[in-house]
Amino acid sequence: MTKLYINGIEVEIEQGASLLEAAQQLGIEIPTLCFHPGLSAYGACRLCVVELGDGRLVSACTYPAQEGLRVRTHSPRVRRARRMLIELLLSICPSSKRLQDLAAEHQVERVRFAVRDERCILCGLCVRMCAEQMMAHAIGFVNRGYRRRITTPFDLRSDACRRCGGCLYICPVCEVRCQGVGAPSAVCGSCTPPAPTCPPVYEDLACYMGATGECGTCVRGPRTPDSHSPTVAGRREKV
């Protein structure tokens, strides 16, 4: 067993476990994108970075728990870094609901990079799914650096592919499209966690369950960059 400290709390975990597992044991939530418990840890999206005692930021999913290690999962540096990473992700893949939700959770309010709509963040979950769970090895990374992408050999239909759909199943960004996103910003903001705007009726209507806006009592929309008028869920008008 290895004893370490996460956010000042002592935790004991079996040898060889990752910092992510140690944090989960304490119920501390660390955001992840390229991690899946059924697949090998890859450490590519860096969203799970945590701060070590010596000031380094390391990915919790791949960093092994070590005796006496001091870890901070939500320090200001960690949060700042995560916000920038989410901004980078959104700039590639703004139509992903998952990413928009992450943006909302982390108060990412704008995307300052030129947006490309690529629908793939190269997290590699599908590649690992195909190789490790399906044993098919039909898809993989090609090229490197900014030209990297995921495809089959020679971009042709692969003989190794059994069309199991495992790649689609596991993709964190292409499964659900965000319905609310539109110009001028890549940040949707429509699904910002519902801070109830209608406390008197909130308890009864439980707006966040899906009846958003129907009673007509909410006048303040979700938090968006200043330029937007109050909205009704999923819709947005420019002032």
């Binding site: 190789a131 090895h137 490197r144």
Partner: peptide, 12 residues
């Protein structure tokens, strides 16, 4: 070895 692994190497 899987063809995709070679293809990855060849393009990397």
């Amino acid at each position: 070895i899987p063809l995709i692994d070679l293809y990855s190497i060849a393009t990397f």
